[in-house]
Design a binder for these strands. Structure first.
Lengths: 330, 330
DNA sequence: GTGCACAGTGTTAGCGATAACAACGACTCG
DNA sequence: CGAGTCGTTGTTATCGCTAACACTGTGCAC
């Protein structure tokens, strides 16, 4: 048998369908005994409101869309969960549409897919250059909030303060007495990677130090490993700021294999503070980003945006330097 | 101005709304020049079909629900992406409802939330004992597929063969000449943890070895670290099979701190093959689970289930032992 | 030339809910 | 005691779409 509808319930309870609707939504007055009869009928028929019909009638879907990254990178995945959690608590459903590769077109497509789903607003987790560009071309009539680092985007945005984090990491190393600090950057098309690199460079320059050549990885441990080998080959490295923890792990591995000891020979700082970082060999000094909080605030900001109160808002979340043995005493 | 509707498009193109519907869905014949006029009108009005209305009219939502775990554990997160990817390719949208703690009630609630969203089918990623129980009480009229390890559930299920994986891990260690193999298990309420533990025990018994006392963690590196310290305190340990890679990392750390060398003093095997595992110190021998494939097959299975062709189906995916230095020559 | 198939299009009736207003009785108030 | 108020319920229209069927006209077979 098919799903029961409002009318079925109304018939069984001997009332009009509107009365049932009132009972369900708590709108308008209903006599207690009528309410009881209706509720009994609902129980008996295992009635469940049809959200498509409700959406059609009200124009509200109580659903938000999230454009996520098709990856299991710790950051993006955590932000997704932060968003989902906050949204669910507020009674919103979440529809996701992920993109495999962060290209302008794919992000626009994902947004388009979500718009057809009649979502009320969209959160874009896409800390790429391409994402920023895609957002520029997004119609202004969709309530949209960027999560991550799309700084230049013409939409409200929530992001961790990458500059601050990278500055702290670099200054921490400088304070330990190093003459310079090397940097392993993330992929060039990630805004976060760019921001960290830029801030690292500026911090060095502020101390009158010329930044050494940047090595670039792709966030993966493997690329960190390779960068580590390259550094060893170059010689004369005593301090490295790596753009994420995974690459830092790869680098630690490369150092270990080559007999370079951390923290004795080299100091290393990562970025993210993944749950594993405290158990690397040695435990990694890193910059903690509270992704869950980012997700939560992004959701909040989207709610504001839905009420048109988020014009030009940009929320910065301050990261935190967590000092561990990888920059410990030698 | 509000979103354009079929009728608006029809008016602009000078046809009936049905003709527009036919153009959009490719149903029924339409003269090429009419089609062109309609398409022009669609373009001009930036028309976008209203999915709520379509769902209401057809009874099909082209949407699937996923009950996910509110965690960034590598496995569950990867499976989610596998599912999402497969579904999107097939034109299905995905609505997620995550549960923070895997209790029977919360899982039932999540399923209920999704049912109201008019999803056509539901995938439950919830490899817990509680999930299995929750699924028993789920009405049989919702097409539902379990992803993970809910073996006893009365629904079709896709899972990695945990028994096989744990057996391979244990036998690998035994083949290296160890007299026995210790085990750090996962949380007792996870079916996967149970399966790995049970299979480890059976494998030892099959070799006439009595299983040593099990230590139990919570999947976190910290718990692995503590288990490692406990093992060291107990002494006389030469081979450990750890139920996941994160705990194995913690254990490696505990060993390093205590001056116990892997692989020289102790051999360690993990489970999962997270991207980092190859860069642990030492690189970790582990059992690789292809989570993306699990997600893909789960989606496929749900499609079968939607056509009532999945009765009692259970798909097992065989994991693979990846040998690295943590069980290398001493 | 009559009939029939079929391409092409329109008309009408839902899908299951909410919105807006109407209807009715009981009660209060002046 | 008539009018207005309010609590309670019902009626009707509507959201945007598709399903089902009705209606044209054309081309072809016989």
């Amino acid at each position: 048998m098919r799903q029961a509808s409002l009318t079925d319930v109304a018939e069984l309870a001997g009332v009009s369908h509107m009365t049932v609707s009132r009972v369900i939504n708590g709108t308008g007055p209903v006599r207690p005994e009528t309410r009881a009869r209706v509720q009994a009928a609902i129980q008996e028929l295992d009635y469940r409101p049809n959200s498509a019909a409700r959406t059609l009638a009200t124009g509200k879907s109580e659903t938000l869309g999230v454009v996520a990254l098709d990856s299991t990178l710790y950051g993006p995945a955590s932000m997704l969960y932060g968003i989902e959690h906050a949204a669910r608590e507020a009674g919103y459903a979440i529809t996701i549409s992920s993109v495999s590769r962060p290209q302008r077109q794919s992000i626009s497509d994902a947004v388009e897919v979500l718009r057809r789903q009649a979502v009320e607003g969209i959160l874009v987790i896409a800390p790429h250059v391409a994402a920023g560009r895609a957002l520029e071309f997004t119609p202004r009539d969709v309530p949209l909030v960027a999560v991550g680092a799309a700084e230049s985007a013409p939409v409200p945005v929530v992001t961790v303060d990458q500059h601050d984090g990278a500055r702290r990491a670099t200054e921490h190393l400088l304070a330990l007495g190093h003459r310079t600090v090397w940097h392993i950057a993330g992929p060039e098309d990630w805004l976060e990677a760019r921001a960290r690199e830029q801030s690292w460079r500026e911090t060095l320059e502020a101390h009158g130090i010329e930044a050494p050549t940047v090595l670039r990885g792709d966030w993966s441990p493997r690329s960190g490993y390779e960068a580590g080998r390259a550094l060893i080959a170059g010689g004369d490295v005593t301090a490295v700021f790596v753009a994420n923890d995974q690459m830092a792990l790869g680098m630690l591995r490369a150092f270990t294999e080559a007999g370079v000891t951390v923290p004795h020979d080299v100091h290393v700082v990562g970025f993210d503070d993944v749950p594993e970082a405290a158990y690397f060999s040695p435990p990694l000094t890193t910059v903690r980003q509270d992704f869950i909080e980012v997700g939560r605030q992004a959701f909040e900001l989207l709610l504001l945006r839905l009420r048109d109160e988020a014009e030009g808002v940009r929320r910065l979340i301050t990261p935190e330097l967590v000092v561990r043995e990888s920059t410990g005493p030698r």
